[in-house]
Simulated scan of single mutants.
Amino acid sequence: MKIKAWLLLLFCNLFWAGNMIVGKFVTVHFPTVWMIFARWLIAFLFLLPLAHFLEHPKWWKLFKENYQILLFMSVIGTVLYNWITYTALRYTTSLNASLINALNPGLIILFSAILLHARMKIGQIIGLVLSFAGVLLVITKGQPLLAFQTHYNKGDALMLIVIFMWAIYSIVGRAAKNVPPITLITITSFIGFIVTLPFLPLYPIKLSNLNLSAVIGIVFIGIFPSFLSFVMWNMATQMLGPGVAGLSMNLICIFTAIISALLGAKLLPSQIIGGLIIIFGIALSSGTPLFHRKVSLKKAELFNKP
């Protein structure tokens, strides 16, 4: 069972890494709002029957009891998070984006300590400091002492905004009452693509930019990192526990680096060293089994991603 669970996590994080690589390619051909619309419409079409038959939700009752939280999560996590991420990919590399995005779990823990008064251990504080140092190394291209003199890449700056948004999204999401996991992402994906509808005419697609590869890329994003990754994540979490699954998210950086290298991208020493520091720091700050024997479910649930 453990082998099966790790295989699920392997592909889950591989697809999330693919979102960074393919997303950067597709942004050249599709306006960002169309990417978000297509991604969550495709995901919704697959998620709806799955949620209906596996979780048997009372849709209207769940929405009525949690509509404020669900609307917030949909706008922040499904629309704005993706909008800013795909916009960032127009200006920065997929690897930089994934490395900065790796701060998510640690930042969530930090926000939990600030907003929810959760207790932080010394090891977690050290891990967070290391993680932020690793990101600083990446975005300054190995010259952290010039942090206040550097003109940052616009994409890197946008990714920093993204991780703060995701931390708030994740903490607010904990307030949703009695909403099963697949049902939750089904509802937020539905609201997500509905919210984008009024904006589609404002950003018309240029037919000259369309090609088969771009369309395949959109379908890939809708099915693999949006639908399949979520399902595999939840299956693996049930088998191994959320703490171990959370540790696996560091694979996103590694997979993105490997795919980028295979596609001919040059990896900077600052990206490699910074990435290793980030991964070590996040593992330490997250209180994963690598450093602690016990991980509370309450904390580990924060690692879940739509």
Rank of each mutant, 00 (worst) to 15 (best):
I221Q: 15
I273K: 05
A257Y: 01
L9V: 09
S226I: 01
P225H: 03
F37S: 11
I252V: 15
N101C: 02
I258E: 05
F15I: 11
F303G: 14
W40N: 05
L207C: 10
G23L: 00
K266P: 00
I3Y: 13
A51N: 05
A167D: 08
F63Y: 14
M249H: 11
V215S: 04
K58E: 15
L45P: 03
A245F: 00
K121G: 04
R119H: 06
K121E: 11
Q124A: 14
S189P: 00
T92Y: 03
I223C: 05
P225L: 09
I125E: 08
W60Q: 14
I282R: 03
G264M: 04
D156W: 02
G23W: 00
W83M: 07
I218R: 12
M235Y: 09
G222I: 06
H292M: 13
S189W: 02
F190P: 04
N19E: 08
A257S: 03
N153K: 06
L47R: 11
T78F: 06
P198V: 04
S226L: 01
G77R: 07
I36N: 06
S226F: 05
T32F: 00
M239I: 13
V215P: 00
G123S: 15
L247N: 12
S98P: 01
R293G: 15
L7Q: 06
F199N: 01
I114L: 13
F111N: 05
I21H: 00
L50A: 14
I42W: 11
T256S: 14
P57T: 12
S98I: 01
G246N: 10
L80R: 08
Q149K: 13
V179W: 00
G264L: 01
M165F: 09
P144A: 03
A167V: 11
T237E: 15
F280M: 12
R90C: 08
L41N: 04
L212R: 12
M235G: 01
K294C: 09
L128S: 06
L197K: 06
L207A: 15
V75L: 14
I182E: 08
S170E: 08
N19T: 01
L145A: 12
